[in-house]
Amino acid sequence: MYGNDGLLGEVEAAEEALRDAAGRRLSGGEGLEEYFIAVIEADQKIEPRDWMPDSYRKTLIRQIAQHAHSEIIGMQPEGNWISRAPSLKRKAILLAKVQDEAGHGLYLYAAAETLGVSRDELVQMLLEGRQKYSSIFNYPTLTWADVGAIGWLVDGAAIVNQVPLCRCSYGPYARAMIRICKEESFHQRQGYEILHTLAHGTDGQKAMAQDAVNRWWYPSLAMFGPPDADSTHSAQSMAWKIKRFSNDELRQRFVDMCVQQAEVLGLTLPDADLRWNEERKAYDYTQPDYDELKRVISGDGPCNRQRMAHRRRAHAEGAWVREAAAAYAKKRHAIV
């Protein structure tokens, strides 16, 4: 439905809509809750100090924190290849991309903090396993082609998920998502370029690219979450305009986008039943294994333990830096 130009167009349209809505007059909205509903109905944004229902606040904290944690944990599978990137150019690009992921995590933690929770608390909840991150980062990056497949498929799926969030009813989240989506489009293109180069290289390189696509395709489809019928948070989030499309709608949109892109790569998607359905004007495709998704989310994927152990170690090993910076600031303060 949107390719790369379409994507940035969508983000800009969301920004435009935000400005248009801000000028709209609200109808009704005398009491606190009525005002909250009127703001959402007018497609305006709820801001940090506005009254909001407790469950709206809780839903947002859970979702934004999970999103932030995903960006932070998401640095690991790609970071794995920084030292072994095939050229200095590829290395510099990958480094910039991983830095972006850290930046995205920080934008999102800042957005979550406007809801009255501190970043330290959120980090603690991640480290203790009380909050989750996206299941996709629990799969290993076995070859350099995986870095390409992550950029094309994983970032591609993330973009399809995230572009509608630029219109989310909570202001700080929507603004963070606009910023993130603008930066994210480079990620998807760099992945696509890696795969395109490999797919047009030697037979061995092409086979490596195909193998990476084969392994990342279904986990990427699973990123959109369980099918609508089993999705626990969806209906209320749609009513509050936190979420704009259902899991299955977004998954379909992603599949429809990828088919043509795979053709240009000269690679195949690993689904024998993938075919155009003229009646639905969309592709029929095989669903990912949702039992596997459940297992990976609940901690039993190929790399869950490794990812969490690495994060805990990095956090513990960085403690002296945080302490030294705080001590220095305190000392300077005492002198002044």
């Binding site: 930046g103 920080l106 934008y107 406007t114 910023r179 945080r322 705080a326 220095y328 600031a329 300077r332």
Partner: peptide, 19 residues
């Protein structure tokens, strides 16, 4: 443009540049 955390003003400026 946004918020960030830092122990002091000098670090805040550097973090803001990076972020």
């Amino acid at each position: 443009v946004g918020s960030l955390r830092a122990p002091d003003a000098a670090m805040a400026l550097r973090n803001a540049r990076d972020l």
